[in-house]
Amino acid sequence: MESKESKKMVFVTVGTTSFDALVRAVDSPQVRDELSSKGYTHLLIQMGRGSYFPSKFSGEDGSLAVDYFTFSPSIADHLKSASLIISHAGSGSIFETLRLGKPLIVVVNEDLMDNHQSELAEELADRKHLFCANPQTLHQIISNMNLDSLVPYPPGDSVPVAKLINRFFGFPDD
């Protein structure tokens, strides 16, 4: 089963809403060629409530195999089996991916009215935990990215906040 061993999947997730600009970007020949040349064999897209449907490819001719679905109860399995994740900028999927230690490209949705989400993606990109792109620059980011330059994300800890609340009431630390 050599084909299975050499399977390198890219998983794209838009979260609970829609992000057609991202689906359109990963569906473009530019991005698909770039992923193919980087050695990726499969592209799986979670497209949410979007109205743009990407084209499916079986990948039998050696090109990038493309498949998509709308929603799945558990995205965790897809994240685990992927070699590269391209995600919307929601904090949920960002931290879920970083905890798995997988390479991540966050694509910021510039159509959102309250676009505070880019703050987090840019900060984490500055700290080299992930790459940050927008739908227009995605193919450049893929072509220029060096996965070895990424720094593992040290997981956060909610105990100090619990201690702060405890101290306020005079409760001893557990």
């Binding site: 979260g15 609970t16 929601g90 904090s91 949920g92 931290f95 909610s158 105990v159 906040v161 619990a162 609340i165 405890n166 409760f171 557990d174």
Partner: peptide, 16 residues
């Protein structure tokens, strides 16, 4: 909702 809930539950998880 979403990310907010995840953060909140991680705090609740470590409260006595």
């Amino acid at each position: 909702s979403g990310g907010h809930t995840a953060e909140m539950l991680s705090i609740v998880n470590v409260l006595n």
